[in-house]
Design a protein around this nucleic acid. Structure first.
Lengths: 223, 223
DNA sequence: GTAACATGGATTGTTAACAATCCAATTCTT
DNA sequence: AAGAATTGGATTGTTAACAATCCATGTTAC
């Protein structure tokens, strides 16, 4: 293993954002992070630079790095981009899904069900995102998969900022119905269901209250 | 202006890639770049890090940075992603284009015409890419616009690597016809023309010969 | 009591020197 | 002479110390 160092920092922070343990606006101090990960400050700096490339960290000169706080306009753009990208991903999935892929989707749905029962919010959020990521992997387009990674990450920030209660974890049976449509190679059906699903997620955000940015960094990154 | 330093390096290299002055595979040595731009090696390093985020530079540990050489699979994924993204961009453009936007498109077409007369290849390539970028700006979705920036950049590398003669600069009247369709708010027509246009570009690449990677770096970055 | 101003501490940004790695040319062996 | 080991040069990666900037606290004037 050569240097999974900054990759580890990046992944840790991305995971924390995806799970909504790290809220928008929390400061990512260089010294704090270097102590948490027990490494040099330069590695933290590089990791933060990569995260700004992912559009999930804002870097203010001489003032440090902060978890990005998407604007309402950003939110609209992100969700429109998701519709554009996930439509093609889903079409690919319908056309190319192998029996093993379908099985993986079903297994994932079972996990989601189990997690929903346990009322474990962070895990449920992670799994909900995982369904879309899995779909992207089945679609077998690395470019679109990478963009969706970024967009789902930003979606987590958006929902954490503007999400109304029922939006944070929307109907999971939609995931099941999309899976069924894919399994029976119903392209039009799958696309329609996916589009509905994304619109439901988007419908669950309101641009009124902007939650504050308080955050216990070390606790959020504990694993 | 605080630090347009690394931004300047990034933009210079991106421009050189977009214009196909920098070919895939050319080495981007840190010292060479720091001498060209008259700056510290660390700034070069940061710039290269950003460029790897754009997927146009590959970073091999202990061996330096090289202009990325997309694989055939990458090429397929990039062009499919472009169809997905530019479709939505074009729809936005048809719906939201102001008279000023249309005028800007027409002005751009005039530039393209003029450049085509002069047989100035780098300029023609830049302008051909510029049409798509302009369309994205008119679409007013910053996320999709940023992705298209990246994808057109990678397209330049792909065409430079695998492009057959007539593909490097394909029919510009297609740009004109797309503009006309947008001007008359013909959504279906515009989308169909754009899809055709992208398929024509894609049809002009052949995955046989992989051109070598020789490159005079300082000359390519001269401006 | 409020507002402008100075000061101390903390954080970020930069520079330079040092260590580790890799590549190519040279030398030695068979 | 061909091939393998070696050594020197060049390039990348890391570390530590230094400079610049900003924020908050405390002070002073009005």
């Amino acid at each position: 293993m050569d240097k999974p160092l900054e990759a580890l920092i990046v992944d840790s922070i991305l995971d924390a954002i995806a799970d909504q343990r790290l809220a928008a606006g929390t400061k990512l101090g260089e010294q704090a992070l270097s102590e948490i990960f027990g490494c040099n400050r330069l590695h933290v700096r590089r990791a933060l630079s990569m995260l700004t490339g992912w559009q999930v960290v804002d870097h203010l000169p001489n003032r440090g790095a902060y978890v990005a706080t998407p604007t309402p306009q950003d939110a609209r753009d992100v969700f429109q981009a998701r519709r554009a990208i996930e439509t093609t991903i889903c079409r690919n999935a319908v056309r190319q899904a192998t029996p093993a892929d379908i099985a993986a989707l079903r297994a994932h749905l079972a996990e989601e069900d189990a997690a929903r029962g346990h009322e474990n919010r962070p895990v449920a959020i992670r799994l909900s995102r995982g369904f879309h990521i899995l779909l992207a992997r089945i679609g077998r387009n690395s470019v679109l998969a990478r963009y969706l990674d970024e967009l789902t990450m930003r979606s987590s920030l958006i929902i954490g900022l503007y999400g109304t209660g029922h939006a944070t974890l929307c109907a999971e049976d939609e995931h099941a119905r999309i899976t069924d449509a894919i399994a029976r190679r119903d392209e039009a059906g799958a696309l329609a269901l996916l589009d509905d699903h994304l619109r439901h997620i988007e419908a669950g955000i309101r641009f009124d209250d902007a939650a504050p940015a308080t955050g216990a960094l070390s606790a959020a990154l504990r694993r």
